[in-house]
């Protein structure tokens, strides 16, 4: 077969929201995979478990946690949107509107979410007490 031209398809909201849905889905899957492993460790060796959990208490991991929260939140909200696209008779018509609605909900949750989740880290890094 002749080579298929490899230029990116430009797509629109529907395609990019799906790309993000798949990326967040796979990312959350890998997080859960690691999380099952580290949690299972408690039954093998509680000391090692504590050491691993201790190693998570760094600013970088904290920001990763925010990223994970954002990913799960997007995946869940968009998942509801996709369910409505498939099962609500007007879903396909309003799919773009629904994407804007979930984007707003995402921002509204993530701003305070970011604040409370990283408060501790910022205090540690810059608070100086």
């Amino acid at each position: 077969m002749a080579p298929i031209p490899a230029t990116l398809y430009r797509g629109r909201e529907g395609m990019w929201s799906w790309v993000a849905h798949r990326i967040t889905g796979v990312a959350v899957f890998f997080f859960l995979f690691v999380h099952v492993l580290d949690t299972a460790l408690v039954r093998v060796s509680p000391e090692d478990y504590n050491a691993v959990i201790e190693s998570y208490k760094t600013p970088i991991v904290n920001f990763l946690e925010v990223g994970l929260t954002g990913a799960v939140l997007y995946h869940a909200l968009n998942g509801i949107r996709l369910i409505l696209v498939d099962f609500w008779s007007k879903g396909p018509k309003y799919h773009r509107v629904m994407l804007w609605v979930i984007s707003v909900i995402w921002i509204v949750i993530m701003i305070p979410g970011f604040y409370f989740m990283t408060k501790h880290t910022f205090e540690q890094m810059f608070g100086g007490n």
Binding site: G11, R12, E13, G14, V85, G91, P92, K93
Partner: peptide, 26 residues
């Protein structure tokens, strides 16, 4: 079908394709 709406956006006849697919799923 992953409902990316690329088909609906591309159709030169303006057919609501994703809607039609959803109706078949239903």
């Amino acid at each position: 079908c992953r409902t990316t709406f690329n088909c609906t956006d591309a159709c030169p006849r303006g057919i609501q394709i994703t809607q039609a697919i959803a109706e078949v799923k239903q």
